[in-house]
Amino acid sequence: MGAPHGHRLHFHGHSPLHRAPAHLKVAGLVTFMLVVVATPGSWVPAFAAYAVALGVLVAVSGVPVGYLARRMVVETPVLMFAALLPFVATGPEVDVLGLGLSKPGLVAAGALVTKATLGVLASLLLAATTDPRDLLAGLERLRVPTQLVQIMGFMVRYLDVVTDELRRMKTARESRGFTARDPRHWPVVAKSAGALFIRSFERGERVHLAMISRGYDGSAHQGARR
């Protein structure tokens, strides 16, 4: 765990967007994206309006554009899939640089990229402006089952511990001169995953015992709250 106990996407700040209650932000994100998804792909002005609205929110949040832009790489697989669409879709074809591309495919690819980009940007903005603890409390206010929120709380809390454990195993493997290069090396990597499972499971048991010794009785309202 590093010193700032936020997750990797969180951008510390004090803008109105940072201070807004998390449950409103999550509800707003879901509503906004449902509207975006339900908008027919041909309504270009509507999408321009969504983009402007999102841009204003980014400006208000004070999260640097470069910070968000670098994290948009998560969208790469979607872009690759969208690039394939004009080739595989049916319908009337148009000539683009000598290639016969499907027109509905092009339109759909455009709509998919637009909607997915708006979605990724909006989600990134939520992640950047919301502390994970507030997010969990917000989800609980939105009536997400307490148990699910508790599990999520443990996951968020131990994410860095477990991924660090995985990283240490990799360092250990490599310090012994091992680098996984092809499928013949899978058994070694898989054994690391197996060891990681045993360690995670045992850590879960230890955490549970530690909680019991501090008075946890298996009921709700203790895990996710601050």
Binding site: Q147, Q150, I151, M152, G153, F154, M155, R157, Y158, L159, V161, V162, T163, L196, F197, S200, F201, R203, G204, E205, V207, H208, M211, G223
Partner: peptide, 10 residues
């Protein structure tokens, strides 16, 4: 909660 949380992390 703790077990499923840690297994989810795994």
């Amino acid at each position: 909660a703790p077990l499923a949380g840690l297994v989810a992390t795994f």
